[in-house]
């Protein structure tokens, strides 16, 4: 088995699907010759040709429109938004158009589009590059939102996303791109969308999280273990739709839950998870569900980034607070 970074696993998934299905196209700003600003598409144009892997002019809305139109003629697009903060330019093409295509045509047309995009704090990018905007996407019916936390999951989830017959927003946390390697099989495998994964088993508290906060939560769980606390870490992997069953199963076992996200607090994924626990497992709880999030402000690029972002210490502290309620 090969050792891969998350970015390599992502490239590998695209290569696999370009080979697997001639209708798959990969495109976006700088994805062709340059191989993407993070090299996610490195070598793909050379291997599959300009017909399959190509640069687009610089216009996010039209990249989305292109994907929508290509869907109507039977193509399966993997379009890149260079940074997810640019999604506002493409919001109509995603939420207003492709997410509604299946509904709008009464099931006749569909948009098999994967919208790949880097996001996430901690790497000191300029403004509008790092924001966690998954909550905005998750409120859109007809759209799935996937956020991998490691190289192995990234490959299996991306292959599933590309094969999905509806639009999938696939968000890649920049901090995870090259921060560590995993054993990643070179052959193809899929991880189903909408399924969470227990990244660490525990009995005292369920830490429910996704993306880069999975790594922070695992680090927190290690510290907590030293204090005699057994924390289970659930990686949602897909934030829309939520794997409600996995969340409830874990909470019913541990009777305590802390939900962690890098995004701002209000109206996001964590709030949704808390609501589902409230609906389905409130009588299993021995304390209110804790939440660790960023502040409800604009993402403070560079200057105050490190304090603004939640970290392993914040998570460990919130777990203790919940257990000592």
């Amino acid at each position: 088995m090969a050792q891969m970074t998350m970015i390599q696993a992502i490239t590998d998934a695209m290569r696999n699907e370009l080979k697997n299905d001639e209708k798959v196209l990969v495109y976006g700003e700088d994805v062709g010759n340059n191989g993407g600003v993070f090299r996610a598409t490195d070598g793909l144009q050379k291997e599959f040709g300009e017909e399959r892997v190509f640069d687009t002019p610089l216009a996010e809305s039209a990249i989305g429109g292109l994907a929508h139109g290509l869907s109507l003629t039977g193509y399966r697009s993997v379009m890149e938004l260079q940074f997810f903060g640019f999604v506002f330019e493409a919001f109509d093409s995603i939420a207003g158009q492709m997410a509604r295509l299946h509904y709008r045509s009464g099931g006749v047309y569909n948009a098999p589009v994967t919208i790949r995009s880097p996001f996430g704090g901690g790497v000191k990018t300029p403004e509008m590059h790092a924001d966690s905007l998954e909550g905005l996407m998750a409120q859109t019916p007809g759209l799935k939102v996937v956020i991998p936390s490691n190289p192995y999951d990234a490959k299996g989830l991306l292959i599933s996303a590309i094969r999905d017959n509806d639009p999938v927003v696939f968000l890649e946390h920049m901090k995870l791109y090259r921060s560590f390697r995993d054993e990643v099989p070179e052959e193809e495998y899929t991880i189903p969308l909408g399924k969470a994964d227990v990244k660490r088993e525990g009995t005292d508290v369920s830490i429910i999280t996704y993306g880069a906060m999975v790594q922070a939560s695992l680090k927190a769980a290690e510290q907590l273990e030293k204090d005699g606390i057994s924390a289970e870490v659930i990686d949602l992997r897909t934030v829309s739709p939520l794997d409600i069953e996995a969340i409830i199963e874990s909470v019913e076992k541990t009777n305590h839950a802390v939900v962690v996200q890098e995004a701002q607090k209000q109206a996001g994924i964590a709030a949704n998870v808390v609501a589902e626990i409230n609906d389905r497992a409130i009588l299993s709880l021995e304390a209110p569900v804790g939440r660790v999030t960023a502040a409800d402000t604009i993402f403070p690029f560079a200057a105050a980034e490190d304090t603004w972002l939640p970290n392993d210490k914040d998570i460990a502290a919130k777990v203790k607070e919940t257990l000592n309620f």
Partner: peptide, 25 residues
């Protein structure tokens, strides 16, 4: 045909996509 578009102009970028599909085929 695509269904009638309500958002003014969204059909125009989609047309580029359909035309690209026709060109590729």
């Amino acid at each position: 045909i695509m269904l009638p578009q309500i958002i003014i102009g969204a059909q125009i970028t989609q047309t580029a996509g359909v035309a690209m599909g026709l060109q590729k085929d």
